[in-house]
Design a protein around this nucleic acid. Sequence first.
DNA 1: AAAAAAT
Length: 525
Amino acid sequence: MSAKKTSSAPARPAKKAVTASPATSTDGAVTPDAPAADAEPEQAQPLFSELGLSEPIQRAIDEMGYRHPTPIQAQAIPYVLMGRDVLGVAQTGTGKTASFTLPMLEILQGSRARARMPRSLILEPTRELALQVAENFVNYGKHLKLTHALLIGGESMAEQKEVLNRGVDVLIATPGRLIDLFERGGLLLTQTKLLVIDEADRMLDMGFIPDIEKIVSMLSPLRQTLFFSATMAPEIRRLADAFLRNPKEITVSRPSSVASTIETGLAIVDAKDKRRALRKLLREADMQNAIVFCNRKRDVDVLCKSLIKHGFSAGALHGDLAQSVRFSTLEAFKSGELKILVCSDIAARGIDIGGLSHVFNFDLPFHAEDYVHRIGRTGRAGRTGHAYSLATPDEEALAQAIEKLTGKPIPRIEVKGVDNLQWSDEPRSTNGRRKSRKSNADTAAAAPVTPAPTTPAAVADEPPRRGRRQAAATAAPATSTPPRREREAGLLPAAPDQPITGFGEDMPAFMRLPRREKPVIAADE
DNA sequence: AAAAAAT
């Protein structure tokens, strides 16, 4: 590849830049930390010491070598300390995690937890993120006597139960295990007065929202809630409205933008040439460490094995691997022992690995936003990052979706030694080469979607369908007869003379109420 | 279509 790389700065020596997260790399060296400082000389930089954190926490911050809070930290910490709810719109890499862990430590210090009643709860979408947050508590809380527990799947529940029984101040959890344990009675959330919902947009993507709603409904309405999301889609906004009370809204860094510090490129090659093309890119890159994203877990395995066979220092990370392997691989990568991490979208968001020089997309992501998240792993802290993608000729639509979202074209690059192709003219066949045309059966099946010639008669004797609801509404003036389907599904109140069985005399009154669209979460006091 | 998360 050679697109426009000639202007790039001289190679950075491997030693300094490679160190993983600052959390693990510093031994108290108080460097006037560069991250924001050399980006733009903005107004006077705030100091951590001005944020009202007490001595043991301030000392831990000093020892880790931090002096200046990031924008989200500077803005959020004072409000959290005031006891306000916070709605933070921020991506990982902005210092979001410390913006809640630091003030939480401050709030929690001083009193102690009771058995099985955690005083605070942090919800994370993936186990890796949960672990990362836990590390944060260890680092910043090392001069305090607070306890925390990590409640995630894939690990022994007995152990987690025992820690809970001793009482924890901070509970860091993924939703599945938390609910499981709660239902087994190992946990009471009535005393939990501080709740953090992290990466809400990702929770939404992963279908966790019902779980989250359930968990929130187990907490006291008299609680402080901190809610973070990288984006503020309407759905997320709705959730925030349900969970938060009079929140202070803090936004840093706009979503769906590619940082200007990332150099991107896209090569179009045949599927069979992808591995060779990737190796070429890896060898030519002035690379410290890189993440390679694949769309499928099995491709992660295959590619990783292939890279190792070709002499690369690579490890695989995806959700089907044992938890212990996931953690140790991630650790090896962070420490620099592994140079290349081949992974699924498990690591596309959130996971904070410092000093990542390159991101490669072995496959273009299915969803354009994932592209932004993936390549956002590089180009951090004012350093130039590199993000190169491979696509097959039939994936033009994916590339276009990405370019439309980011508003920037991805420059084409050529990989030497493989056939560099163009987009095929074939309109769009989701699955690849062959099957250029088929019988009209296909097209016939697909056809009705567009024209939709709805005759009133056809509408009338069919149950209302999604696409035709409108037509139905205008055709027939709304009758007040409730749809039978809904009545049968129990979505409507039973008639008073039809008792609901199974409760005897103890039937709660709400059983007779009509169901609401979503559960009422925190009734105001 | 794929990935994540509870056993």
